[in-house]
Design a protein around this nucleic acid. Structure first.
Lengths: 260, 260
DNA sequence: CGATCTGTTGACTGTTATCAACTCCGGTGG
DNA sequence: CCACCGGAGTTGATAACAGTCAACAGATCG
């Protein structure tokens, strides 16, 4: 399903939300954009900025933080194929700081182009709207995560979410994902202290649910992690288009989840 | 700004999001709906339900909870004029439980009618989209609230948000609001235990930031509460259409906020 | 090859959860 | 009219989870 052009991850993501035709994909390839590279913890957008373009993530991870000093709370994370600031297409104000977690490659697309694209392709217009709704559902799930889980299950749930979203765009198929972010980043996303994040990760390692060495992270026991986190991917709202063996395994794992 | 018909609060809300003409308001008054009353802690929608209508709140409060047993985490609260399940208009699946906090009056409007309305009035279509984006922003703010504040400031921030949103539709202008919900409800919304919620409320009372007797709640020192909670209403995304004395006071209070 | 960032560990503190008992209030039925 | 009942609010004692401080080890990079 790798289409080989810069927006292939975005195409995967959109195709998981709505039925896209070859014409729709063709329109995507012709979309003009500016490619930019960012270093770890570099700010891409800052609170109060004006914006007339969207930030499409091609490689790496981005995070929204409410403060860009040292350890501002992370309110969401973007993976490749995401449009991190899609909402600015509809309300062009930046109420947070968009920070790269590790090196990242992004494509800036003018709002104007996305609006033209929406007019020419109802399917893409619909997919963008569903992407917005999906972001909302993810945000609601973060509220649940912070509100009703302890540090261990919170971290486990976050890892499940990131992995599932990566698999959605063809990454992390073997439960091995690049992890350029630091333990402090994980702490900021789970709202725990960096020290406690460290101990939490050690606990996950001890349970053989996580290997994290250097900049690679592997999940040796996906069903186990899913069970611990009580992770149910339904909220991601994906059509689960291409059922690969890995996704079948993930599906089987889901059946293992103990009902709340 | 009370227009005197059933949807007046919705009209207020929409008008705060986009410029509405007399024709737009006229279309609203003609919208068919079914009125229903719900008792305290009664479920309006349940996880997994199918839905072909939206639930517009006329009176009272609604909450989304992830479990409807006893004390499931509350992920958001609706005030009059809100369409609690607006997202089902775009993706018709219910991923949570919609519960009344105290007695509530709602109007059910078929999705079909809202879609026709959107087609006939671009302004209302736009306002609905901005309402969705606004809900998203509120959700993001709940993530921040749970992630970066302690019990006292969390409760204070929630009170500020509810008050500001009520004022947005012409309620609680004198910082006196009906509070049919229990301390346990507040606890579920702040993700603290009911016992600790009680102690937190007492602390707010001791600081003269809150009077809560019976089913009425008053805020004697709005600037003080805003300062404690570091509440900045900007995220609500309102056009702040009708500047009343009370709202002017609120604006002055906002200037008092200590920068983060 | 030192500077700096990240990860790791131990000791201590503090906020919040949990448990249990009790009060207060509004309603309900005898 | 009163006794009773259940839900909500209140209080104290104790325990668990997580935050903070401080020091050090290891890696990475100029």
């Amino acid at each position: 399903m790798q289409t080989g052009f810069a927006f292939s991850k975005l195409a995967d993501h959109l195709a998981n939300l709505a039925e896209l035709t070859a014409d729709d994909l063709d329109l995507l390839t012709k979309m003009p954009s500016t490619i930019a590279h960012f270093g770890s913890h570099q700010a891409i957008l800052r609170h109060g900025d004006a914006s007339n373009q969207c930030c499409l993530l091609l490689q790496g991870y981005l995070s929204w933080q409410d403060a860009y000093g040292s350890e501002g709370q992370i309110t969401s994370i973007s993976v490749p194929g995401d449009i991190a600031d899609l909402r600015t297409l509809y309300r062009p104000c930046i109420d947070g700081n968009l920070i790269a977690l590790g090196p990242a490659v992004v494509a800036f697309v003018p709002h104007r182009c996305l609006r033209e694209l929406s007019i020419r392709s109802p399917a893409i217009s619909r997919a963008l709207l569903l992407m917005l709704i999906g972001d909302h559902a993810i945000q609601r799930n973060w509220t649940i995560n912070l509100g009703s889980r302890d540090a261990l299950t919170r971290a486990a749930h976050l890892l499940c979410e990131i992995t599932a979203r990566l698999q959605n765009v063809g990454l992390a198929r073997d439960f091995r994902l690049s992890s350029p972010f630091t333990q402090s980043d994980l702490a900021a996303a789970c709202s725990i202290s960096p020290v406690h994040a460290n101990r939490t990760i050690q606990e996950l390692r001890r349970c053989n649910l996580l290997h994290w060495h250097g900049k690679t992270l592997t999940i040796p026991d996906w069903p186990g992690l899913v069970r611990l986190a009580r992770f149910d991917p339904a909220y991601l709202g994906l059509r689960r288009r291409d059922q690969t063996p890995q996704q079948a395994q993930s599906g089987a794992a889901r059946a293992d989840v103990v009902p709340a």
